[in-house]
Write a protein that binds this DNA or RNA. Structure first.
Lengths: 209, 209
DNA sequence: CTTATTATAGGATAATATGCCTTTCCGCAA
DNA sequence: TTGCGGAAAGGCATATTATCCTATAATAAG
């Protein structure tokens, strides 16, 4: 299912992502600046105007946006259901009836959890190097990071300082002026940073095992 | 990036999927039977003809194909890798040029990693209870488990014994007759199990943070 | 084998999207 | 305050795609 509204929303989403107005995005894509005007999306007779695939291709090329990014905006427009996995509390796992002989989920009693539950988020991945974050993260482990999810106390976060240092820590405390970070390796001391020294902070969502 | 060829390939892929010829697909979508003809995809002057988004929407509606299905064909058409996230080595993250001011991936130099890369696997999720697996897994953490992925040394695994006990450990060693498991909590001793006592063993793929 | 139907190529025409132009409004800098 | 550039609405012209039509080839059915 693909709707007129979805497509235009996706285009608007791209424009917003790249800090452009519709006319700015059109201009950047080599289209006429008025071609993405809201006023031109429905004709005077009520007939819907569908942007051409060629225009979309030009937009993607000019912004450098991936097909996936455009697609993500399309899906948002379509209210796609999240993909869920069977979920069971670990304490129940030892009771009978939850797994079949091959170790697959079976029976009733399983909940559902959204995974990977990216939503509108644009996750990225970092590959750990070295052993400084053992035992939590080993050399070669991959962490999945959300630049937009709001970290709370106890969350693992990627922090970049204004000096350019990037670190992974656990968020211990946050005040109006400072952020206190606990090292993942107990041998290293906690850090307290002034928020003015923090360029950005992103939340670790998943870690590979 | 979206190319003329990708789009037409995706349309052809849909037709094939539903056992239709191009003219049959067009007819089914309420379009003129000649409109998807190969002969009409490039004009006599060499100019490419791009199918309209409206036509594509009609095709998706008529076949009942999902946007994902069309998208999958788009990606195949463009020789695109499975859906992936930008990936960067952590050691590089502190260097300049990899993040924009908002903490989003930027610039070149990012690889791509498949996430969640389930393939045909049937993952399930277990929610950790208690503190016995700290610091690796905290109470309430969710681990994503593959019942089919082959565990190797060092992998975290969910093991069920024939007696019905279910545990999460690290695979230390596996021989023809036994499996040696290291506890995630260093306060607990390693376990050596006879393979005959192991009902099944599944591999932990991801852990929530 | 014959007939009917579908698939495909190609040309002409109708419909639709983009481009061009003008106007108005807004924000910013000189 | 004035001038400039960008954003957006609206009208008209141009370019492009879909539809209609015809013919031929291929396939399916009797």
């Amino acid at each position: 299912m693909l709707s007129h509204d979805q497509i235009w929303s996706a285009i608007d989403g791209l424009a917003a992502r790249y800090g452009l107005s519709p006319s700015g995005l059109a201009r950047k894509a080599g289209l006429d600046p008025t071609s993405l005007n809201r006023s031109k999306r429905v004709g005077p007779d009520g007939r819907l105007r569908w942007p051409s695939t060629e225009s979309i291709a030009k937009i993607l090329e000019a912004t450098g946006a991936s097909l996936d990014e455009f697609m993500a905006n399309l899906e948002r427009g379509g209210r796609r259901a999240p993909r869920g996995l069977p979920l069971l509390g670990f304490a129940q796992a030892g009771q009978g009836g939850y797994f079949d002989d091959g170790g697959f989920p079976a029976g009733t009693g399983w909940d559902e959890v959204a995974f990977p539950d990216m939503g509108d988020d644009r996750f990225y991945a970092l590959e750990i190097s070295g052993e400084s974050m053992m035992p939590l993260y080993r050399d070669g482990d991959v962490i999945i990071v959300s630049p937009t999810a709001a970290p709370r106390r106890g969350d693992r976060v990627v922090v970049r300082t204004t000096e350019g240092e990037v670190m992974v820590k656990e968020l211990k405390r946050r005040t109006v002026r400072t952020v206190e970070l606990r090292s993942l390796n107990p041998d290293h001391a906690d850090r307290v940073l002034s928020l003015a020294d923090v360029s950005w902070m992103a939340r670790v969502m998943w870690a590979s095992q």
